[in-house]
Simulated scan of single mutants.
Amino acid sequence: MSLRHAILGIIAQKPSTGFDLLREFDAGQSVIWPAPQNEVYRVLRQLKEEGLAEIVARGARGSRTYGATPAGRAALAQWLAAPSDYTLRYEPVLKACFLDQASPHARLERARQDLAFFESQIALLSRPAARSPDAPDRENARTMALGLYTALASWARTIVEADEGR
């Protein structure tokens, strides 16, 4: 997945300002795809230059609301139809493959840290504010992420419980 497709998808669902997008990609709030401010604005400029986005409104203090152009909607549809990359590149999963190489203490600490993170993401995704009634398709993504973090938390909890019992 790329940030450009995420931004294009959001502005196709609902025209948004850069500030609106920053809230969507806030690293403290976005478990799916966090992004720094400079990247969000850079991608918006590129999408506009490529004719995939356009300014649909101007607001106070020079804010601009971007929407997807017909070409942008076509590019989004093409990306959605393309085969997905199912390669999982998630560092906690890779580390799990080698936990047998760690000391029992290090293994337990790694699992505790992972469990704390996964549970924090579950709590974040379970908040009513995490739901997106304006964008039901993003509700599907939230539900998928919630299932992923629930499974990962279950794995970490199993390690913690087994190692604490030793």
Rank of each mutant, 00 (worst) to 15 (best):
P92A: 08
E109P: 01
Q78E: 12
I7K: 01
A96W: 06
D114Y: 05
Y149C: 11
R64P: 03
A130C: 03
A82P: 01
T69G: 00
R112D: 11
S154P: 10
R166N: 12
A75Y: 00
A71F: 03
S126Y: 09
P133H: 02
A135T: 09
I7L: 09
R23E: 15
A123D: 15
L108K: 09
G28F: 05
R166Y: 04
R61V: 07
E139G: 00
N140R: 12
G165D: 10
A60W: 03
R131N: 13
R110G: 06
L94C: 10
R110W: 14
A12E: 12
A57I: 01
P15V: 13
F19D: 14
E164R: 06
P34Q: 11
S132D: 11
R112F: 10
M1D: 04
D114M: 07
F98T: 15
F25L: 07
W155P: 03
Q78F: 06
G62Y: 02
R166D: 07
P36R: 14
R23S: 11
L3C: 05
P104F: 08
A151G: 10
A111M: 08
A68V: 09
Y41K: 06
S154M: 12
A156T: 04
P70G: 11
A74Y: 13
D20M: 05
P104Y: 06
G59I: 11
Y86M: 13
A53M: 04
D137K: 06
F118R: 07
R142M: 04
E39Q: 09
A74H: 12
L152T: 03
L47P: 02
G72E: 14
V56K: 07
P136S: 03
M144E: 09
T150K: 10
L115A: 12
R157S: 14
T150R: 14
W155N: 11
I159A: 13
A135G: 02
L47Q: 00
R157T: 13
A35K: 03
P133N: 01
H105L: 07
I55F: 08
P128M: 12
A135W: 06
I7M: 05
Y90V: 08
E119V: 13
E161H: 08
Q101W: 13
E164W: 02
L47H: 02
A145G: 04
R138T: 05
T150L: 14
G18I: 15
Y149R: 14
R73V: 14
A129Q: 13
Q101H: 09
V40M: 01
E139A: 00
Y149N: 13
W155D: 15
C97D: 04
A75L: 00
A129F: 01
N140F: 09
E119H: 01
L152N: 04
R61Q: 06
Y66S: 07
S16C: 14
L88K: 05
A82C: 01
T69Y: 01
A111W: 08
A123Y: 08
A75T: 01
L99V: 07
K95P: 02
K95F: 07
P92Q: 08
I11Y: 01
L8G: 10
L8A: 08
G72F: 04
W33A: 13
A145N: 06
Q113R: 15
I122P: 12
S120K: 14
S2Q: 13
H105P: 00
A145T: 04
F118H: 13
Q13M: 09
K48M: 01
D85R: 12
S30P: 00
E109S: 08
S2R: 13
G67M: 04
